[in-house]
């Protein structure tokens, strides 16, 4: 493993080796980015096993399309986009993306101080996993990947206004769930402190 990492010191070198179909370079890429890219898949697909399957397909896509990568932007960003597309394809084919118009209406967004939120990434991943698929997909695409509503609408085959409304509801639900999680966390901490005393 150490030897493999030593072989590809720079990203450009790694990309060149991948473009030649070097299996060592492929293994190196997998070792370096598989965990991050699996996290991307899990954010869209709330099932680790299925997300892993999608990640494998995404890596195959990366190896196939490595010649299309122009060394202009970030290599990791390019891979994340491919992985996102793979996850969306999976959602389109296996699970129809539910545009939850009739989903339980979230409460209006209140002024919440996110700086006070003391939740770990795993907790946030669990919270996102509880969102309905449509909310989760639009939120992931807009908030984390940085797509515009127009792009999301084109990707998912929905209107921009639907994308906006989905995002708004997703934010409201997330705020509620984060509050609940925060309250639960505080309560748990208090109980632990009392027990310690």
């Amino acid at each position: 493993m150490v030897k493999i990492l030593q072989l590809f010191t720079s990203e450009a070198q790694l990309v060149r080796a991948l473009q030649k179909g070097d299996t060592k370079a492929q293994r190196h890429l997998y070792e370096k980015y598989s965990a991050r890219l699996l996290a991307v898949c899990v954010r869209y697909i709330n099932d680790k096993m299925e997300a892993e399957d999608v990640m494998i397909e995404g890596f195959m896509r990366i190896f196939e399309k490595i010649d299309q990568f122009k060394s202009e932007g970030s290599f990791e960003g390019w891979m994340r986009r491919l992985m996102t597309n793979e996850a969306l394809m999976y959602l389109r084919t296996k699970r129809h993306i539910e545009i939850d118009i009739d989903a339980p209406e979230a409460q209006q967004l209140t002024n919440y101080d996110w700086a006070d939120a003391n939740l770990e990434a795993d907790d946030l991943m669990a919270i996102i996993g509880k969102l309905p698929t449509g909310y989760r997909t639009v939120f992931n695409l807009y908030a984390i990947e940085g797509f515009s509503h127009a792009e999301i609408a084109e990707q998912l085959g929905i209107t921009e206004s639907t994308s906006k409304s989905q995002l708004h509801r997703a934010r409201a639900l997330l705020q509620e769930m984060v509050k609940e999680a925060e309250n639960l966390s505080r309560a748990t901490t208090e109980v632990v402190n009392r027990l310690k005393k």
Binding site: R36, R43, E52
Partner: peptide, 18 residues
């Protein structure tokens, strides 16, 4: 948006080992 910023910052570097 603060919600988006909060989640993006926290989840951008999340890793789940396969």
């Amino acid at each position: 948006h603060p919600t988006d910023k909060f989640f993006a910052e926290k989840l951008k570097e999340v890793e789940i080992k396969p």
